[in-house]
Design a protein around this nucleic acid. Sequence first.
DNA 1: CTGTTAGCGCTTTCAT
DNA 2: ATGAAAGCGCTAACAG
Lengths: 353, 353
Amino acid sequence: MAITIKDVAKAANVAPSTVSRVISDSRHISEKTKKKVRKVMDELGYHTNLNARGLVQQSTKTLGVVLKYSESDVWKLGNLFVSEVLQGISAHCHQYGYSIMITTGSTEDEIYGDVVRMVQGKQVDGMIVLYAKKNDKVVPFLLDKAIPFSVVGKPLERMNEIMFVDNDNMQAAKDATDFLIQRNHRQIGFIGDNPTFQVIQDRVEGYYKAFEEHGLQRDASYVKFVHTPEEEGAVVEEFLIMEAKPTALVISTPLQGVGVLKALHKRGIRVPDEISLIVFNKTLITEMSIPVLTTIDTEAFQLGYEASKGVIELINNPNTFKRSVIIPTKIEPGESHRKLTEDNNSVIDVTIE
Amino acid sequence: MAITIKDVAKAANVAPSTVSRVISDSRHISEKTKKKVRKVMDELGYHTNLNARGLVQQSTKTLGVVLKYSESDVWKLGNLFVSEVLQGISAHCHQYGYSIMITTGSTEDEIYGDVVRMVQGKQVDGMIVLYAKKNDKVVPFLLDKAIPFSVVGKPLERMNEIMFVDNDNMQAAKDATDFLIQRNHRQIGFIGDNPTFQVIQDRVEGYYKAFEEHGLQRDASYVKFVHTPEEEGAVVEEFLIMEAKPTALVISTPLQGVGVLKALHKRGIRVPDEISLIVFNKTLITEMSIPVLTTIDTEAFQLGYEASKGVIELINNPNTFKRSVIIPTKIEPGESHRKLTEDNNSVIDVTIE
DNA sequence: CTGTTAGCGCTTTCAT
DNA sequence: ATGAAAGCGCTAACAG
């Protein structure tokens, strides 16, 4: 059994409560006693038992993080976006002395079970949910139990009861589409992953909006979803056999971006000469790609950082206004897009920007 | 305050200890009582307070995971390898009802602090260390405190006191180099990241060994280290200005692989026509690369899975033999290598395999 | 400023 | 088969 507060108290000739007060650096304790006690703590190698503290304080200074669930394993943690968000969360948590516990489940039900255990078992003081999707049980549960939490992404319901951090995905997709329209593209495709995630829906909407604002026709046949990396080839194929095939694509993840690039390459279609690409999330892999992908930087690290900030504020003061933070996105021009000439379908007469 | 075991006891007209026994499904309790108590637990919505249990049982069923520290942020969690290992750990932990707590620190000292807090604070029952490097304080600390732990990677000291899971990195690098030598390459470069990690040192050694076994000269000028993605161009440049420039490269991470590919592309050097590439770790990004990279698959998921298995066995039985598990690597031929003709430096007369 | 006391919610002997 | 009671290590009134 390890050294306890009692051992320290005895050795220092004080009461356990005094030791406790020294630990919390209470100002009701004389410097002299503090020094004495601290010396003994050092000598004995005392360390607070955080379970005991957690039990009495009803707080563990730990945040639970729900990692995004995706049908396809390769998009789960392998997802660089998630990793970056997690780094942002870590950075903020570390500053405030919070620990991080992550879900281990790999199906939605397992993850829900993890959350229940963490919350009801009082293992965490708050939660961060890394996704917002339809038919999700986690967010309603957290709401019901009145647990401090924040969502990275846009909740689908009860938005004003929930603190969340997100990009304006609709605006971002609109910006991206605008960016292409301004460069005279008219046939623009959209490729998204799991459409049950709200983020994808918002992006589709923004994509449509850009068309409308330019007085152009929206066309659902230009919007496609890819559920596994293997499907990318098929989707690209579908686009290529269209009568009016797209001259540009808006793509919702870096991995998909690279996948599409690959599928196009295999078919001898050159980027950006024959088709332009703009991809969500600037990550190492979009930077490393050949050509460098033009991206919409969503500031994943910042997203995580702010989410953590939000929950911790909420923990410290449950009456904190449930604000929603919108992290601005920015188009980062790479080498994967080009401008078409005015008579928009010309592929030969290229204007290099 | 939430429902406690006492509330349940009262409502069910039994003693708290009986409720506790029902929770642990003790065989000294009659089925009848069990049913009755369980019903009440359900009705009241009882959930075990895991802090309290942790306090009395001196165990939290939680594993701490030390995420690999790297000077460069982009290689930290962004590292797909780490993500995959973490998935493997998660999968096994979930099976055995263990939770995962991760370190939040971003410098070596911060991480060490995290570990001390987790361990001394009795937040975790065991640890998994995701790296093995020189001058590391974490492993000696864990050893000193006799905490159950396992290392993903090869420890540098006291190997027989430590349970670890690793690839045979020396063998893997030797295999990769052999693979190239057999295809008539003679000028083969090696690019690694942080050489303070043991894994890199082993790989360098394996690389040398392949030369020796083929009766060829080893040459340290063909071994280079890259610390930041920006340096990749410079290193490639160094190789290209050598009198006898390499016809092939062995590269220690996927990200570096893609980086090198990019640097070569920028300089108009074609892969695999002018230079062959073989890269450690088969990940999504090596698969997505154009051309698909020839890789040495290190089975990251499996590495994590086995590491978790090891610690949990150790926790359940501290006398478990401190075995080391070697996960076999396998060369996955992609499109980034080619075979040279017998008179090895010929670049024009290519043999396509 | 410091000591005494009473729990936090659970498990675990020891009785019965 | 079940209950009573002690205690895990800590904090937080309440005294003094």
